[in-house]
Design a protein around this nucleic acid. Sequence first.
DNA 1: TATTAGCACTCAGATAAAATGAGTGCTAAT
DNA 2: ATTAGCACTCATTTTATCTGAGTGCTAATA
Lengths: 349, 349
Amino acid sequence: MNKSEKRLLNERESAVLRALVYEYISSGKPVGSRSFVQKYSFNLSPATMRNIMFDLEAMGFLMQPHTSAGRIPTDIGYRYYVDSLLDTYELTIDESQIIREDVIRKEVHLEKMFISIAKMLSNVSSYAGIVLTPRADFTVIKYIELVQLDLYEILTVFVSRTGMILNKRVTISEIVTQDDLHRFSKFLSSELSGYSFQMIKEKVLGDLRVKLGNSMQFQLAVDIAELALNDCSEQAIFIEGIENVLHLPEMLEERRLKSFLYVIENKPKLSQIINKYVNENHVNTLIGVEIEDENVYDCSLITSNYSIGNMNVGALGVFGPTRMDYEKAVPLVDYTSKAVSSLLNRMSK
Amino acid sequence: MNKSEKRLLNERESAVLRALVYEYISSGKPVGSRSFVQKYSFNLSPATMRNIMFDLEAMGFLMQPHTSAGRIPTDIGYRYYVDSLLDTYELTIDESQIIREDVIRKEVHLEKMFISIAKMLSNVSSYAGIVLTPRADFTVIKYIELVQLDLYEILTVFVSRTGMILNKRVTISEIVTQDDLHRFSKFLSSELSGYSFQMIKEKVLGDLRVKLGNSMQFQLAVDIAELALNDCSEQAIFIEGIENVLHLPEMLEERRLKSFLYVIENKPKLSQIINKYVNENHVNTLIGVEIEDENVYDCSLITSNYSIGNMNVGALGVFGPTRMDYEKAVPLVDYTSKAVSSLLNRMSK
DNA sequence: TATTAGCACTCAGATAAAATGAGTGCTAAT
DNA sequence: ATTAGCACTCATTTTATCTGAGTGCTAATA
């Protein structure tokens, strides 16, 4: 048989790959044949294990840092592990307890809740925790209020069904009084409430203009709403617990540290990467090169979208080295995103 | 003469200390006598230099990492350097240009401005940049608006003279309509505008209650204002550019890294440290042990308050290792805080 | 045919010894 | 007061050696 040809692994090879990834994740050191067969009670001689490892290496799942070193998983190896070999890890009672409490306790103030969820993700996983707040586009408006800041400056306050508050300043060219603004607020609230930002931008405002015809009274109100909505899709990103990753021994390597900091410093880039997968409805793992950025080296990103209704509005996850405890991180991210979804849905009823 | 007695340094000793601190700041390596006398053209033999260094060490300004190593400044040495020996460094045209542009350009949105100032401080100094936003206590209110979030939940929006916006949620026990809230907003705005949070808390609200007597109409409005003002002194802190410090060679030392991250992770603690010096009207340098936290090791913090009127309302600065370019960092922080003060004063006219 | 024992070989990492060099303090002469 | 000279110190660098866990390959075995 041509060993370098990619094929599904047989049972024994699978078992070896699984155990090897597991061992490497916990020890961080290349895995050699002798100690490995012992520790994991394979009923095999080291020699046979070497043969198996050789095959796995030929197929691209393993590599050696140097000749005469043990093997470590390649990105492809991790990928296969995550896709095909991952045991379903049950979060411990404590862990799911922590998650639930963390999500529920901070319900009062959504922004703080997101930060604390990022912290929780980091604490439980011991990697960096990431939360992307809901994109405004799919946020459903409950209430709008306009506040005068200055002669030509107005603050628009959007209150979403979920209780998020979004401030946006707009500059207009006419002078209005706060009384006008109060009337506008009432008008806009009654007309726009129940619609998402996106729907309003795409349709509702247009309809409204038609309906108003050439009655001038509320034209300015519509203008203001339009201005405010224009660039309102900004999504905040919270990253917490980077110190967890900085303390890892592999971070002593210049290259890895650089790579990690590069991602952490480039928040917009990171949002962008995460948002590529906005339509996925399950946990998304990006392993090493799959992050598709030449500056990123040896990092993995695990994310999952959370949703309101059947709309994915935001995402959360963890970020760390490729040598990551996927077995734990994946269900953590999964569970958390579901908890957040369910909370948001309850709130937006 | 008793060498270990502290006394003012003579001219030559001063020159040596100044040059030595300067040399150590740039090289990061203990400074020895031979190369030092050459490089800085002291007309002295290395032996004499050693004598001088010995004296400076006896007086506590220098220390040796180990016998037979060169000298490095102690915290006390840095302190003396900063207090007495610092040349007035003129920011370059470019640098002050950057500062001014950075402060002015973002004027539109104060929160973003503060973040970008923190970034700028970091870029120019190459340490971490810190900004503490204005304390609400001394912020003068221009306008108040109340928005209904839920049956018993109200969002209060304070607009300050400087254009800062402060959101605060309060929970009340009576049901009110948005129309009520509009009337309340008008009432509160006219009664409270022009006063600072502190004045309102301490006096204005009380006076107002007296004035209202047992007219019930606006009692609830006053209640809401009181609730909102209650815990409204929170001051946001922005830290940017920590990667600049993480990349420094000394951060390879576990202990220093830990210490640095400890401060960065403890934002409330950091605010607290900075706020200890809220009454200072000049640049404040905290060197090493002066930070007075057992967990902080080998770090320096340079801050300066910025003010509105003659009230210090917030602070900004840089944070890095004790081996810091004080000569540049001090005027940078100074200049920036003045620029921010002047901007805020212009805005609050 | 799959497994294993045996063996020669590799190589990172640890340990030890030696050489280097930039530094010191001290003393005596200037 | 300054300096030359000298013996001494010690982190760092260099070099050599050793060790141990690893490998691949081959031939014997089940």
